[in-house]
Structure formats: C-alpha cells, structure tokens
C-alpha cells in the first residue's frame, strides 16, 4: 500500500515536485472519498480544501433558479478541483459534486498557503501549477460562450 507522500507526489498536479517540497505539502494532505451525488463544496463556501482527483468524476455546476443546475465542466483522474483557494477572499465560485465514486487527495488550503507563504520558491512552484489550469479553463469558457456548435443565426 502506498503512503500518502507517494500518492501526493505521484499525482499529476504535483508531478516533478522537488522531494523536500513534496514532504512539506504532504503534511497538508489526507485521502478522501465521495459517493455519487456528494458535494465537494458549494458556491460561496470557504475554500478551505482543494482536491486532487485520483479516481472518479466530478462536475462543476452553477445553480439556476427554477431550473436544473447548469453543469459546465467535468473533472477526472489527475485533475485539480477548485482554484479559489489560491487568492483571497478564498470563497468557492461554483458547486462541485461527485457523479461517480470519487477518490481524492484533500489538501488543507490554509496549511498549503502557509507553507507557500513561508517559502516563496515553493509558492511560486505551486502557482505555476495552478495558472495553466486557470488559463485553460478560461479558454474553454470562451469557447463554450461562443456556442460554436449552435445553429447558425442566418440561413445559408
């Protein structure tokens, strides 16, 4: 059986992280499990944890009054769930819900932030891992807004 340090450092999010740093961040990590339908977090809640999916599928969604929630992204093995923990005021901007049995690493965000603040080299490394996820989500959102597969507005 793998220990938590192995699991954390082998997760794609932390892939290649310096060994010492790895030991540092592992101190913030624990294994968690979500059943289908369980919420990882809710919109507006405190971003106290971030989740690294090891196995399973999580959907990000926004509740719409009088309608089913709008689901705008699914996350899978190897993905990071949640980015609001990086910057103040550390509040979630959407709901995250497991749609299959999901096993993940939960990282205590306060703990991780403190370690990043204490060692800016680690902080910069972590930030460089989060930023590409943010930008790719931004690009994906742009493409979704464009509704590229929608029916043309004007006929041929």
């Amino acid at each position: 059986m793998k220990n938590i340090a192995q699991i954390v450092c082998e997760h794609p999010f932390f892939h290649g992280l310096d060994g010492e740093f790895c030991d540092l961040v592992c101190g913030c990590a624990r294994n968690v499990r979500f059943n289908p339908g369980d919420y990882l977090f809710h919109e507006g809640g405190d971003a106290d944890y971030l989740y690294l999916i090891r196995y399973g599928q999580v959907t990000l969604e926004i509740a719409v009054p009088g309608k089913p929630s709008v689901r705008f992204q699914t996350l899978h093995d190897g993905d990071l769930v949640g980015v609001s923990w990086v910057l103040p005021p550390y509040h979630w901007a959407y709901d995250a819900r497991a749609i299959t049995l999901t096993r993940a690493i939960a990282m205590d965000a306060r703990c991780l932030r403190k370690k990043c603040d204490d060692d800016p080299v680690l902080g910069y490394d972590v930030l460089k891992r989060v930023l590409p996820i943010l930008t790719s989500r931004l690009h994906a959102t742009q493409m979704q807004i464009l509704d590229v597969y929608g029916a043309p507005e004007q006929p041929e």
């Binding site: 599928q57 959907t59 929630s69 709008v70 689901r71 705008f72 299959t100 994906a140 509704d147």
Partner: peptide
C-alpha cells in the same frame, strides 16, 4: 459543452 443532471459523461471542450 453543457449537460443536464442525467449526463454521465464529460463536460468541457
């Protein structure tokens, strides 16, 4: 791009 609650597959581009 978008799905309702009963879609078990991936959402994203």
């Amino acid at each position: 791009d978008h799905a309702g609650g009963d879609w078990p597959g991936k959402i994203g581009v």
